[in-house]
Write a protein that binds this DNA or RNA. Sequence first.
DNA 1: CCATAGGTAGAACGTTCGGTCTCTTTCTGC
DNA 2: GCAGAAAGAGACCGAACGTTCTACCTATGG
Lengths: 187, 187
Amino acid sequence: MSTTTGRRVSEARERLLRTASALFYAEGIRAVGVDRVVEEAGVTRATFYRHFPGKDDLVVAYLGVVHDAVRDAAGEEAGAARLRRTVGAMTETLCSPGFRGCSFINAAAEFADPDSPVHRAVAAHRGWLSALFATDLAAAGHPDPDGAAAHLMMLRDGAMVAGYLADPEVARATLLRGLDAILDEAG
Amino acid sequence: MSTTTGRRVSEARERLLRTASALFYAEGIRAVGVDRVVEEAGVTRATFYRHFPGKDDLVVAYLGVVHDAVRDAAGEEAGAARLRRTVGAMTETLCSPGFRGCSFINAAAEFADPDSPVHRAVAAHRGWLSALFATDLAAAGHPDPDGAAAHLMMLRDGAMVAGYLADPEVARATLLRGLDAILDEAG
DNA sequence: CCATAGGTAGAACGTTCGGTCTCTTTCTGC
DNA sequence: GCAGAAAGAGACCGAACGTTCTACCTATGG
């Protein structure tokens, strides 16, 4: 077990990932070069390439960070409560300053090739989220969990876009109202 | 009036714009360089820079082409009919092969700076579309045209994303059903 | 018939891109 | 105290980026 004691899982790697996440989200992925990330992380190029095979891997790691945050916000036990918690967390993010839309939707806009690792990561997250919605809806006794999950996913996507390019408060209220309506269809 | 007779408003310019539109939409704006556009349009760099001050202007022109197409699909006389026609045209696009989402949402993902000409063009189109929705809703006798327009805009945005990253048929049906529900609130 | 505008052709600009390299320093575990 | 991994410093690569340039050709309109 007891692996390298000192700086645990590489302090430089964490700084790299944190810096890249902020930059990619705020300015766009293709708009930010490796130079920028490396410089603002206070790390040398050599160090970057020791931790990541290439820029694409950094992008995938960035999306992994966002995915983990959503997963952690959701929690464990399936049901209407988790659904409200998950969607509630989204509406919080939606209205916070610096919100620039959904990381995954934005990434898919930049990486069109379905075979690209980045595009695959987007598809994986969206598949996971849809499945979570469907599971919770089923646990809440919804007669058509899959259809309702697809519907809810669309509402969420619209809210994410509107939170960036329109009024976040309206987006928040509309998404919450939509969730209530879907939950009303269940028991 | 009678300006240059021959090739009307510059054949080369039109080829440039057509090629750029296809490329930008299919692969992303930052992913496509001037070299690619110029080469695939069968035109030299000098010709490109005689017609466009720079790449940004080409991007804005591309968004203008898309905007014009939406405007033409909408038509003139305000009301429920125009609303159905406009949204109906969107659901057609949504389900057609090669659909890669909304040009404006995708452009905003790549151009984060609100002062950028590209971001401004996105905001302008979205403002125009929201206003069109509100006008039609008001003409149809909706009690809260602005609120309903914001709601419809969110449904549209969600459908655009879902048409690209999820099931287009579901997106189409859900958007159409949402429009009906909103129209039911009116007379 | 000549001026002019729009086109082609293609070299070149400086910058940035993603990525690789060598050399030295620092820290940890044995 | 010494081996070895992790990181710093920074030069370097070829390619692509957006952009500018000169030179020549070819239509038109006056």
